[in-house]
C-alpha cells in the first residue's frame, strides 16, 4: 500500500450483489478503473455494522444464496485473470465460524484470498482464527475506531497485519458525517503505535472526500457509494453493462481525486 507516494484505493462490493454472475467482471472493472485493493463483502443475514445501502446489498446477494463457499469460488475465478491485485474478504464472524477456522484458512488461501476482516471479531476473540490465518500466510485486518482508547491500539496492532483500517466515524457504513481533521488526528495517533499502513473507510463517497482523507492516510476505502451506484445502474432491467460502467465512472473519478496533489 502507498507505493512511491501513490495512495491506495480500496473498493468494496458485496459478493453476489446485485447478481452473482456480475461479481467477477465487476471486480476486473474496478481494478481497470484504478482500484488497488479489492475488498469483497461476504453476505450475512445480520450485517450489524452496515448502513441501509450495504444491508440491502447483503439481502440481494442472499436472495441468490451466495454462501461463503460461493464467494471463494468467485475469488478463484477472479484469480484466473488477475493474480496480483490484493483481495481481502470483509464480513462477519458466523459464516467463518461455521466453516471452521482451519477449513476457512485452507479454502480461502487456496482460492487466492490475501486477507480477512471480520467486523465483529475484536482482538479479544481472535486467537483461534489468527493462528489459522498465520499458518496459511493470510493477513488479518483490524478496525480502529474513533472511540478506541490510545492504550488499546497496542493490543490491536499486536494481532494485526497487512494494514490498519481506521473507521472514520461513529456509525454504520455509508453514514454522512465525515470530519477530516478528526481523521487526521486519529491517524496520527495510530502511526505513533505502529508501522503498518493505515487505510480509512466509512463515509467516503466521492472524489473530494476521498482526496481529503487520502491526504491524511495511506489508503481510502469506498463502499456504500459504490454499492449504491452499481445497483442504481443495474436497475430493474438487470443491466450488467450499465452497472460496470457506473462502477468504472465512480472509481475512476475517485482515483483521479486522490492522485491530485493536495491543494
Amino acid at each position: 500500500m502507498s507505493q512511491q507516494g501513490r495512495k491506495a484505493l480500496l473498493t468494496y462490493v458485496v459478493a453476489g450483489d446485485p447478481h452473482p454472475a456480475l461479481t467477477v467482471p465487476l471486480l476486473h472493472e474496478l481494478v481497470a478503473s484504478g482500484a488497488d485493493i479489492i475488498e469483497l463483502g461476504v453476505p450475512f443475514s445480520d450485517p450489524m455494522s452496515e448502513g441501509p445501502v450495504i444491508q440491502l446489498g447483503h439481502e440481494r446477494a442472499l436472495a441468490h444464496d451466495v454462501s461463503l463457499t460461493r464467494v471463494l469460488e468467485m475469488v478463484r475465478e477472479f484469480r484466473r485473470d488477475d493474480s496480483d491485485t490484493p483481495l481481502l474478504l470483509m464480513g462477519y464472524a458466523n459464516p467463518v465460524e461455521h466453516m471452521g477456522h482451519a477449513a476457512f484458512a485452507d479454502a480461502a488461501s487456496a482460492a487466492g484470498v490475501d486477507a480477512l476482516l471480520t467486523v465483529d471479531v475484536p482482538p479479544e476473540e481472535v486467537a483461534g482464527l489468527n493462528a489459522e490465518l498465520r499458518r496459511v500466510g493470510m493477513d488479518n485486518i483490524f478496525l480502529v475506531a474513533p472511540t478506541t482508547p490510545e492504550q488499546r491500539i497496542e493490543r490491536i496492532v499486536a494481532e494485526a497485519s497487512g494494514f490498519i483500517y481506521y473507521v472514520s466515524l461513529k456509525g454504520v457504513t455509508g453514514a454522512g458525517h465525515l470530519d477530516t481533521q478528526d481523521v487526521a488526528r486519529h491517524v496520527g495517533i495510530i502511526r505513533e503505535h505502529c508501522t503498518l499502513p493505515v487505510a480509512v473507510g466509512f463515509g467516503i463517497k466521492d472524489a473530494d472526500s476521498a482526496r481529503r482523507v487520502a491526504a491524511e492516510a495511506d489508503g481510502v476505502v469506498v463502499g456504500s457509494a459504490l454499492v449504491d451506484a452499481i445497483v442504481g445502474a443495474y436497475g430493474e432491467r438487470g443491466d450488467g453493462g450499465a452497472a460496470r460502467h457506473a462502477a468504472a465512472e465512480l472509481v475512476g473519478g475517485i482515483r483521479r481525486g486522490i492522485d491530485q496533489p493536495a491543494s
Binding site: 465483529d120 475484536p122 479479544e124 475506531a145 472511540t147 456509525g171
Partner: peptide
C-alpha cells in the same frame, strides 16, 4: 473476566463499541 461461560459468551462486536 472475558465474559465467557465455558465456550460461550464473549464480546463479538465492532471495535467502535469495545470501549463502551
Amino acid at each position: 473476566a472475558d465474559g465467557r461461560f465455558g465456550a460461550y459468551g464473549g464480546k463479538y462486536v465492532a471495535e467502535t463499541l469495545m470501549s463502551a
